[in-house]
Amino acid sequence: MTIPFFDGHNDTLLRLLEAPIAEQDKLFIEGNGTGHIDLPRAKAAGMAGGFFAMFPPPLKSNLATVANSPGLSPNLPPELAVTDALASTNGMASVMFRLERAGALAVCRTAAEIRAAMEKDALAAIFHIEGAEAIDTDFRSLDVLYAAGLRSIGISWSRANAFGTGVPFRHNVDPDIGPGLSDAGKELVRRCNAMGVMIDLSHLNAAGFRDVAAVSSHPLVATHSNVHAICPHARNLVDWQLAAIRETGGIVGLNFATGFLRPDGKFTTDTDIELMVRHVDALVKALGEDGVALGSDFDGAQMPAPIADVTGVPKLLQALLDKGYGEQLVTKIALGNWLRMVETVMG
């Protein structure tokens, strides 16, 4: 039995953008075994779709070094100029829309469009930006990106921008680090609420989280985060954050990144699926059955060896079944809860 699933976060478009332009479409459509997601492997695994992130990477910085540093530096990467962020965002969006024209995926703006894509056996993609650096404080680019299909925004990656501040890549610390949202950040939340654009709290610090909770009328969502009580990384959610998400009927997508799963915070492939199940158990207990989903971070993080890539997701779903989760609940975690949230926020 293959259970279809919807993924809350991947960085596949950045991986494709960094390839030679003549190879980008082919890398996804045909696949060559590199990276975590391509069309053949996604189809084989039962992937119905996901949030395809546009992540503007740090300039003059080795992103793998930032993500995998054993010291997990307390310093945030430098801020990124709007022009640089918009250029890379446009590049990733261009890849996505070329893939849509080629029939490899369908860019979806509503839950109905996701369901229609699934009926046609097309991979559904939600246009998401991770870190709002590509948006100017006059919100002109927000209007343009929305018209192009943008429906989900992570206010920050693990750095500061004009709207808010992310948490650093640090282990054994609380996410309550740094200032809250700027006035422009609060206005961004209000505009996204009015437009039906989902706000993603992953990477945002605790003060920014509190500000979103105070300003937003939408359910609180963290597309790819885990449980701080199990892995005390700044990227993970503490008890009061989980309680706030539950109170609004929100969702947390389980992040597969090893350093956000392991109690020791190490980024190592020697990480068992049982630890992923432990985080799911804690999330279900904290959020209820409607509040837990998947948010892999494929193509943006190191995966547990048993998962490896998108074809490993059925192993996680089977582990949940083996643990005693009923098929109905596993299907909600895999697919139904994201569909419900998309319908609530985007229509």
Rank of each mutant, 00 (worst) to 15 (best):
G164C: 10
S182L: 06
P304Y: 02
H203A: 07
Q328W: 02
L13R: 00
F5G: 00
S182W: 06
V215K: 07
D136R: 08
S141K: 07
L76S: 08
F97N: 07
D211K: 02
D281I: 05
G31I: 10
R15L: 13
L317A: 00
I251Y: 04
V345K: 02
K26Q: 13
L13F: 05
V252M: 01
Y325R: 11
G347K: 14
D7L: 00
A64G: 14
A53W: 04
L17K: 03
A282M: 09
G33S: 07
K315L: 14
R246N: 12
L242Y: 05
A222Y: 04
G154N: 10
G326V: 09
N193W: 11
G149S: 01
A117M: 07
L16W: 12
N90I: 12
T269A: 14
T223W: 04
L14N: 04
V227F: 02
E130W: 05
R262E: 03
V107W: 10
V212L: 09
L39W: 13
V342L: 06
V173H: 11
R190V: 09
S217H: 13
I21P: 02
Q328K: 14
L123H: 09
A19G: 02
A301E: 08
G253C: 01
K26H: 10
S216Q: 08
A305N: 14
L72H: 13
D272F: 09
A308M: 11
D200K: 06
A53T: 15
L275A: 10
D270I: 08
G33W: 08
D138L: 07
Q241M: 12
P56D: 12
L181K: 02
V310W: 01
W157Q: 01
V238G: 02
S88F: 08
I126F: 13
D272N: 14
M54A: 13
Q328L: 11
R140V: 13
I129Y: 05
H279D: 03
L99A: 03
H171C: 05
K323Y: 13
T223K: 01
D84I: 06
A125R: 01
M1F: 11
A134Y: 10
A87G: 06
L339Q: 09
G35L: 05
A102F: 11
P74F: 11
M198S: 14
G164V: 12
T110S: 15
D174G: 01
A305R: 15
N337G: 08
E30R: 12
V173E: 13
